[in-house]
């Protein structure tokens, strides 16, 4: 998922200076998961804007309704057409993807010219949880994990080296750039040692093929997911057992306490 955090109020209010009517829209995808787009987050931000003298219309997309999906965000924008038409700006509680999908929709489909501002800063594709997450992949388009024992050299290594470690590894094998992070290349070494692949470690990996990532990348799906597919994916035996197990699982209090400490 795409981790994100809310921007400082100062910056948000800076974008909205001189603008009175604001539509605050919260994404029901990753942003909801990270509390930066769920109903409560929308309510909180709206309250802050109101106390700063703004008139706010709230659009809370429920879980599973992502702002980056044109069909879904379009539906919610259309439902609130009058407010969107009359607003001085939209404030999107989503990653930059959601912001841009909404911008395109208001431009191209609604025929409006509106400022759509980001309320969040997207941090990246992260894995982990429930408390701690780590950026693990930057969707480079040419996955190298098969050459580096499953640890992304481009993302986990602070310099994105294909052939590390660099000379700056700190004591305790922490990264040159940040003593809180592990050196990815020490980890790659240790995994390859366990896997009996040290010869491969000692061979040069070619420079990454950045040519595989010509931005913006376009992507086409021959058969988009239908509503029925979605229902089927959500409501089956596996979903029921999966969610039940998660509910019954012991809360990871330890990690939470560690975090607090």
């Amino acid at each position: 998922m795409i981790a994100q955090e809310q921007k400082p109020m100062e910056e948000i209010l800076g974008y909205l200076e001189g603008k009175k009517n604001i539509v605050v829209m919260g994404c029901g995808g990753c942003a909801t998961f990270y509390h930066t787009g769920d109903k409560k987050a929308v309510d909180d931000l709206a309250a802050k804007l109101e106390s700063a003298g703004k008139a706010v219309t709230k659009i809370s997309m429920p879980l599973g309704m992502q702002a980056c999906d044109t069909e879904k965000s379009g539906m919610y924008l259309d439902k609130n057409r009058k407010e969107v038409e009359n607003c001085d700006a939209l404030l999107l509680m989503s990653c930059g993807d959601g912001v841009q999908v909404v911008t395109e929709y208001t431009d191209d489909e609604m025929g409006l010219a509106k400022n759509v501002y980001p309320a969040n800063d997207a941090i990246g594709l992260v894995g982990g949880g429930p408390f701690k997450f780590k950026e693990t992949c930057q969707s480079c388009g040419m996955c190298e994990l098969g050459k580096t024992a499953g640890i992304c050299p481009l993302t986990a290594c602070g310099k994105g080296l294909m052939n590390g470690p660099c000379g700056g590894v700190r004591v305790d094998n922490k990264c040159e750039i940040d003593e809180k992070k592990d050196c990815a290349w020490v980890k790659i070494y240790e995994r390859m040692e366990k896997l009996g692949e040290l010869d491969d470690f000692m061979s040069m990996r070619d420079a990454h093929e950045w040519g595989k990532c010509k931005r913006p990348r376009l992507f086409e799906l021959e058969e988009p997911m239908t509503m029925m597919d979605m229902m089927g994916a959500m409501m089956n035996f596996n979903t029921v057992t999966g969610y039940t197990s998660l509910m019954l699982a012991k809360k990871p209090e330890k990690e939470k306490e560690e975090e607090k400490a």
Partner: peptide, 18 residues
Amino acid sequence: AAAPGAAHLKAEVAKVKR
């Protein structure tokens, strides 16, 4: 370059050999 004082000497030496 080589960093003989590297925290993880084995990984560093493997890199030098590379």
